[in-house]
Simulated assay, not measured.
Amino acid sequence: MSVSRYPVAIAGAGPAGSAVALALHALGVEALLLDRPLAQPFRIGESATPDVAGLLDRLGAGHALDAHLRYHGNLSLWGSETPRLDHFLHRGQGHGWHLDRARFDQALRQEAMARGVTALGDSGVDGIAPSGDGWRLQVRGLGEVEAKVVVDAGGRRSPLASRLGVERHRLDRLQALACHAPNHGGLSGYSLVEAAPYGWWYAAALPDGRALATLMVDQDLAREQKLDQPAQFLAAWRATRLLAERLPPPARLDAVHAFAAHSGCVARAAGRGWICVGDALMGLDPLTSSGISGALGDALAAAPAIAAMLDGDLAPARAYAKRADDGFRRYLAERRRHYRQETRWPEQPFWQRRAFAPAALAVPA
């Protein structure tokens, strides 16, 4: 059986994986991009903060934001009974974007392929073992692949790093319970965030004219209160103040879709011949709206470290791990600060857990 050989194999073709492929191509490094199929067809929308445009320009992929909705700021009911509008212009920033995630991800993959990156759809890594000075992978749909460096861009499960025995720290059990509304109501241009005793709600307009309504709640609390069931989900939605006013709930729902939204990170960011990027490196609370920004930033930082690995130099990988550690520490401090601003339900489990959340967790090299 013939073996395909690439300097770099990237497991995961979401924004982080495609961005790594683009950044490596700019450095003259060939990579194989492996894209596994989605477990479910429902795609959760996502916000892109204003800094995403500059990151995409550095990758030569600014067009990936074409046809998405402008996002001007956040309307929130958090820590107070009075709604608050936080406009990006008040921070001296431009606008962000409300994304059609499937379209955004596809644009980045297609840009990578247009530049000659080999991408394999409906694939995944079924096995990995050391081979010479690199790795031998069992790739679904292709067979055996040899790569000197492997990149885990496979999301919050860190699937490739876990196969290498790298532990992942999980800080909470937050999940997103989501559905689409038939129209975006009074949400155009803004994200809406509303705290509740059991968690918090997020809603945003989508480019296709619909809206996304999402409840962020811990898995055990969702089960106990049956919030993952359409009837109770709708009842909780109707009981909101700001959300129900701006985005009235539909009369009925057929299903509520659940997605992982917990905070966590790998115990090691990189090692000899491997590196993690995006959610596979660290999963951030959706409250930060920084998932896309973080994925692109990781890719741009990881590419030089990967190129150095190919030459046997691990110093840039250690610097990359230090960057990840510093970033995750800042994130945890900010996360705890933001959750502590909500003091209306101190006895409720969701808020008690976050009041005593850790303020630091190392991500060593």
Rank of each mutant, 00 (worst) to 15 (best):
R330G: 14
A317M: 09
A255R: 15
A269W: 02
P230Q: 07
I275N: 02
A315E: 15
Q232S: 12
A251G: 11
R323F: 10
D325K: 08
D218H: 11
L253T: 09
D208H: 01
Q229R: 15
D311S: 15
G283P: 05
A260T: 14
G264F: 00
A315Y: 09
Q219F: 07
A303C: 11
A255D: 13
D254K: 14
A251N: 13
A269R: 04
A299P: 06
R268M: 11
L242V: 13
C265R: 07
P249V: 09
A307N: 08
P248A: 12
R246D: 03
D218L: 02
L281R: 02
R238C: 09
L287H: 05
A261K: 08
D311T: 14
H262Y: 15
A270D: 02
L227M: 12
L221A: 11
P316M: 11
A295Q: 06
R330A: 12
A255F: 08
A255L: 10
S289A: 15
G312I: 08
A319K: 12
A244M: 07
L242I: 13
Q229I: 03
P249D: 08
H257N: 12
L281T: 04
L284E: 01
I275Q: 02
G327W: 00
L242R: 09
A301T: 11
L247R: 00
A317Y: 03
P304L: 06
I275E: 03
M216Y: 13
Y320H: 13
L296E: 03
D298R: 02
